[in-house]
Design a protein around this nucleic acid. Structure first.
Lengths: 345, 345
DNA sequence: CTGTTAGCGCTTTCAC
DNA sequence: GTGAAAGCGCTAACAG
């Protein structure tokens, strides 16, 4: 660690300047020097200090990634994709988790800022204060991109998937199977998922029942509890559309524990298509998010903004896709006539 | 980002030195100055540059975490624990994944080094070259701790859980239930898990059958495939002990798909106790790893070494605990007499 | 208690 | 093509 560019220079019989040119690739370095520097570097095990470099260049080669909880499988997949793509551009990813706390989100951004990240990728949830902080950063020239982080006046780039139409497709699928009592578990009524859910019900002429909508928490516990509640309803829903796979999988498990057979008596749809969805019992019907694309585009956007500097904040929306697996089936009393007919009404 | 300590100093009407003393907490700062500096900082939105600071102090406040794959739930939990604990000590965690590639592991360490991490926490798999690299680093004064990363001559600190006795307890549990054909899925025959498995069989006077041992890959795919193979055996095993929960859960799923009822005809034991294990169908019997403890101790060790400097490499071993849930039951033809008797050979 | 000053390791003109 | 030298933002003596 204490071997510096000067040591390399001395060893190679050149000056630091030349070593630096070799390192950065800016400016010419003679074929001869090039070879000797390369040798000296490997012999000495020299690793250039980014801290020192960044002091001059104002670039750390670091992308900050603010997440709520890394233990969420979807987040982990996203982080992995981001890291893979960043690597291709020579960036490292610095992940800071917030455990869903607004205060910690702000602290996380400051931590990342302190370490000089070149850009920021931020995921929900966001508080007004966080959004303001990010907007300022963005204004001061730092690439900031919100991943599924909608802000009312668009104050930084938004990369999002079309959750609304994904939710619509999922609900349409259930309607098409003859389901009329379709429950929803999600974060809020303003989410794209809820909008899609509602739109599908409306299009099918189905009532929107308050007791079948569970908003607030999502995740394993929430899915479990919501399922318990739904099961206790006088008119049990015959289908549940859950915010994400983590939630949907626990719905599956709770339903099993309650002897509420899936998909015979209950159909379940998730969102994300995490690895386990493919292999749950039964395999989960879900809405695929283009995770790799998200990572790829997020990094590409950061890199672009780093050079193009200040373009107007833009929205990039990626499509979703419904994958039908074993967790959805015809509604219990729907008979054979129900198949896909009620959908266009 | 471009607001510096000088700006703060000017605004507060003091000198940079005083601002620095305020920031670091070293040396005295008058109550008056203190207040004005604090005000200036918030007004200016000043975030000190760690890069600049670390150039002097040789400390970045960063702990590097080298993992194979963040998508492994256990890894994600570990990363989360590590991040929580690091935060308490004022450290950030820089995660670099290797996707299991030895070359990438080396590159990851260099990436981390380049960013000047103060310490390194490394998880398997490790190659000889990686171990050598880490040993050198450790020798040059950097805290390095291997998490479950055994090296033959102990060249850096090893923090590990007693997987051997965990595996022993798991297998003993199966033996106690009357199982005689117990299969194993793991990484290698030199792992603690295999040793524990073998020891338990031996103690029970049970033969160690080659075709019931599947070493090499682990994880969802491996669990799925191994189960397929085990099912095709003339003498189907009545129990499977899997390397980790990710593997065990896919065993559960594959068994279900094969109409191989768990735990009636097949008992399954995992390792890790990830979140989903509690809620799988049926709930997974598994060996708990003290994840939080691991994170806590890893960070504490790094911090300790950062001050105490060079102690001899040591081994810290944490105990495991077997949690019995619904995925294990009496062996199919064991009758009631089998209960726990065969255990003491 | 506080100001001044000399670097930390690198990059980057500017000469040669 | 390459060397010399200044400076990035901060910390850490060292005077006062």
């Amino acid at each position: 660690m204490s071997v510096t560019a000067y040591d390399v220079a001395k060893r190679a019989g050149v000056s630091v300047g030349t070593v630096s040119r070799f390192l950065t690739g800016h400016g010419y370095v003679g074929k001869d020097s090039r070879q000797r520097i390369a040798d000296a570097i490997t012999q000495l095990g020299f690793v250039p200090s980014r801290a020192a470099a960044s002091l001059r260049t104002k670039k750390t080669g670091l992308i900050g990634f603010v997440v709520s909880d890394l233990r969420n499988p979807f987040t982990a997949v996203l982080a992995t994709a981001l890291q893979e793509r960043s690597r291709e551009h020579g960036f490292g990813v610095f992940i800071a988790h917030t455990m869903g706390s607004p205060d910690r989100a702000i602290a996380a951004v400051d931590l990342l800022r302190g370490h000089g990240v070149d850009g920021l990728v931020v995921t929900p949830p966001a508080s007004p204060a966080l959004v303001e902080q990010l907007a300022e950063l963005r204004q001061s020239g730092m690439p900031v991109i919100g991943l599924g982080l909608r802000t009312d006046p668009l104050s930084f780039d938004l990369l999002t998937v079309d959750t609304r139409s994904g939710a619509r497709a999922a609900t349409d699928h259930l309607v098409g199977l003859g389901h009329e009592r379709i429950a929803f578990i999600g974060t809020s009524r303003s989410s794209g998922r809820y909008q899609g859910y509602r739109a599908a019900l409306k299009a099918a002429g189905l009532p929107l029942q308050r007791e079948r909508v569970q908003v607030g928490a999502v995740g394993p516990d929430a899915g479990w509890n919501a399922t318990t509640r739904f099961a206790a309803l006088p008119d049990r829903p015959t289908a549940i559309f859950a915010f994400d796979d983590a939630t949907a999988l626990s719905v599956l498990q709770r339903a099993h524990a309650l002897d509420w057979p899936v998909p015979k008596a209950l159909s379940v749809v998730g969102f994300d298509d995490v690895d386990l969805a493919r292999r749950s019992v039964p395999p989960l019907t879900t809405v695929v998010q283009p995770t790799d694309e998200l990572g790829r585009i997020a990094v590409a956007e950061i890199v672009r903004q780093l050079t193009d500097s200040l373009a107007e904040p833009a929205v990039i929306t990626l499509p979703t896709e419904l994958v039908v697996r074993g967790s959805t089936g015809p509604a219990p009393n729907a008979g054979s006539a129900a198949k896909g007919t009620r959908r266009k009404s």
